[in-house]
Design a binder for these strands. Structure first.
Lengths: 234, 234
DNA sequence: TGTATATACTTGTATATACAAGTGCTTTGC
DNA sequence: GCAAAGCACTTGTATATACAAGTATATACA
């Protein structure tokens, strides 16, 4: 391991894996690490940034750097930000906010989010487009407790997506998936610009943070322009 | 979009998506971008690094920066490096190289890699461990044409894995997956430290580069310590 | 008591600089 | 002709510095 920032990165990983730094523990600040390893602050910072990118650390301006919670995961399934995914294909990403509001929770939604019915729930409805063609209709119900500023977000600007925002403000620890093929309602057909009779791929997902259910989302993809699994191009 | 490096990143994305920069095209150098946007080289570099991390650009020391090939992909399935995956859980990663050699290709392997039988094929057999407990036996056959230095790699050192190495030297464009549950042979049982009668999860994967099949891998996971899909913790 | 204000920390952004190291092309020397 | 050396360019690493901005605590003041 030649470069010095990698040495520091490995040293930090060793501390985390060795139990010296437990999940949630505070990591030494950039300046402290710089002193300890005899490097400049920017070099120490690079190691911390790399680990933060990998999800091992969580950094907050003004507060410090902390060890992320343990995240046992399967190696084949991962939730990707739709904006990143489309950019990764070299295509233009664009999204349209159809709805962004507070709603009174009906019994079904309250149950899904583990809340009392009648309480307030945030709801968003976005249409994600790849090269100006819709590829996903996202309907999302959010527990206000975990993301009180959700309604103030400017989704679409700077490629900000609901999933990307939530991932930033709440560390996600678990998810439930349900994948199915469904017929398109008239609304869906017009929004996704579907051909007559074209089916939709529906992904229902519930995401959990450390303190409970963060959001419930239903993602509708046009059957002809989207697929999951089997032979993969990436 | 406040920070300047994000402005540059967005500008580059716009050029790629707008067709001004096609796949494979050369991107302006760090110094050129710095002049064009009136920032320092380090700021331009940050934008390029971010896009390289996302897989949009490919950077090569001494050569330059290029637009990566298009990579249409599903958003739910992704191949993660086992070392990163384990580190992401905050666990210790370690791997043991059991075999690393050139073999004469038998008919079956030659067919899998799309080569003439009797030719030379690189073969590796590694045991990946999480907290000293084996979680994956990886058997991999590699087309020497795409990775001539494969046998010279020091897998295990610096968390270098075959998958990570191949991903670095060859841009992967496609993959085939086959997932199944199999019984464990005696060898497998002892290597993976399996209980009597414990099944294995077997993932067979063929990875493609732009010019053909790069490698064929069989990954065996202990059924009791590994799972895919359904309810996910991550 | 409660509310501002100051402060000491943290991470985030940006710059200028220096040298290392890899690639491709030209020039030199045999 | 041909191989070695040099050169111009690229990205990679590392440093020192400066200021912006977010967080929490202590302090002063009404």
């Amino acid at each position: 391991m030649e470069p010095r920032y990698l040495t520091i990165k490995q040293a930090l990983l060793a501390r985390i894996e060795g139990g010296i730094l437990a999940a949630g523990a505070r990591v030494a600040s950039e300046n402290e690490l710089a002193s300890e390893f005899g490097v400049s602050r920017m070099t120490a910072r690079r190691a911390l940034d790399a680990l933060a990118d990998e999800g091992v650390l969580i950094r907050t301006q003004g507060l410090g750097t902390f060890v992320a919670d343990e995240r046992p995961s399967s190696n084949l399934i991962e939730i990707r930000n739709i904006a990143d995914e489309i950019h990764g294909r070299g295509h233009a990403y664009h999204c349209q906010v159809l709805t962004l509001e507070a709603q009174a929770a009906d019994a079904k939604q309250a149950l899904r989010l583990g809340l009392a019915s009648g309480g307030e729930i945030f709801f968003s409805r976005l249409l994600h487009c790849e090269n100006a063609l819709p590829v996903q209709l996202e309907e999302r119900w959010v527990n206000p407790k975990f993301a009180p500023d959700y309604l103030a977000q400017r989704f679409g600007a700077q490629d900000l997506t609901p999933s990307g925002y939530l991932n930033k403000v709440v560390p996600l620890t678990e998810a439930d998936h349900l994948i199915e093929a469904v017929g398109a309602s008239e609304t869906l057909q017009s929004l996704l610009q579907l051909a007559q009779g074209e089916p939709c791929l529906k992904v229902s997902r519930r995401t959990f943070g450390p303190a409970g259910i963060v959001s419930y989302a239903q993602l509708f993809h046009p059957g002809s322009r989207y697929r999951l699994g089997g032979h993969i191009n990436y």
